[in-house]
């Protein structure tokens, strides 16, 4: 067994030199590259984290925008439904009013038509009554009829107030008869009217066949109707008033 101090020294120096050389050419550069890669990886991770944060923020913004759009859509739909309901109600109300107006118009037209028909019927009935009355009067005794109508004329004058009768006395009056009056008939009329008015009557005579039968007394400010025509007119007016009262 040998132990050489020179070799010990050489080997110690060799190992120390090797430590320095490998530190210079191996350990330091490789460790530096690892550290640089770690720094680069950390930077990339930071950038990725920032990008992820940014993406999450963008996603949240999109979500919020989508929620806002949904809310806006719901509000728009609610407004549209409300407007549609209001328009529907308005249209229904207008249609209902139009229908009621049409119904009222139709009802009024129907009433008017009925009234017109009734009036026409009344006119026709009145004309028929006049015709019937004229034909009946043609078969009656003219003298007796005239006497009856003269009596009713006197009764009409008697029913007038005293003051009015006093005004009529002496005033020019026109006697309208349904048939022409001869001299005797005119004298009877003058005597009967004068007796009722209290003096001589100032009468003129005129014939109107439309009266059918009877005598009427007229002046510019006075009229005493006493004929079948006037009676028929009064009956027709009464019937008309009854019809109007029934319609109301």
């Amino acid at each position: 067994m040998t132990f050489d101090p020179w070799t010990l020294g050489f080997q110690a120096v060799n190992v120390l030199v090797l430590v320095w050389l490998l530190h210079r050419f191996f350990w330091k550069p490789v460790a530096g590259m690892i550290a640089a890669r770690q720094v680069a990886a950390a930077t990339l991770l930071d950038k990725a984290e920032a990008a992820r944060t940014e993406a999450e923020a963008a996603s949240a913004e999109v979500t919020a925008t989508r929620a806002g759009l949904a809310a806006e859509r719901d509000a728009t739909l609610a407004t549209a439904r409300k407007d549609a309901a209001a328009a529907r109600d308005t249209l229904l109300a207008e249609a209902r009013a139009d229908a009621e107006a049409l119904h009222d118009t139709a009802k009024a037209a129907r009433v008017r038509a009925a009234e017109t028909l009734k009036a026409n019927a009344m006119e026709a009935a009145q004309g028929l009554a006049i015709t019937i009355a004229g034909q009946l009067v043609a078969r009656l005794d003219n003298v007796a009829t005239d006497a009856a109508f003269l009596g009713w004329l006197v009764e009409g004058l008697a029913a007038l107030p005293e003051a009015e009768r006093a005004v009529l006395a002496g005033a020019p009056l026109e006697v309208v008869s349904a048939a022409a009056q001869d001299g005797a008939a005119q004298n009877r009329i003058v005597k009967a009217v004068g007796a009722e008015l209290g003096g001589a009557a100032n009468l003129t005579f005129r014939t109107d066949t439309a009266l059918i039968a009877g005598h009427e007394l007229h002046s510019p400010h006075f009229s005493l109707r006493n004929s079948w025509q006037a009676d028929l007119a009064r009956i027709a007016a009464a019937l008309h008033e009854d019809a109007v009262r029934d319609a109301a």
Binding site: D4, T7, F10, Q11, N14, V15, L18, L21, L22
Partner: peptide, 18 residues
């Protein structure tokens, strides 16, 4: 100084490593 074989081999190893 004697140069042993171990020293020469060490130099060779050093050369290869470096």
């Amino acid at each position: 100084a004697p140069i042993m074989a171990s020293v020469v081999v060490t130099w060779a190893i050093m050369a290869v490593l470096v």
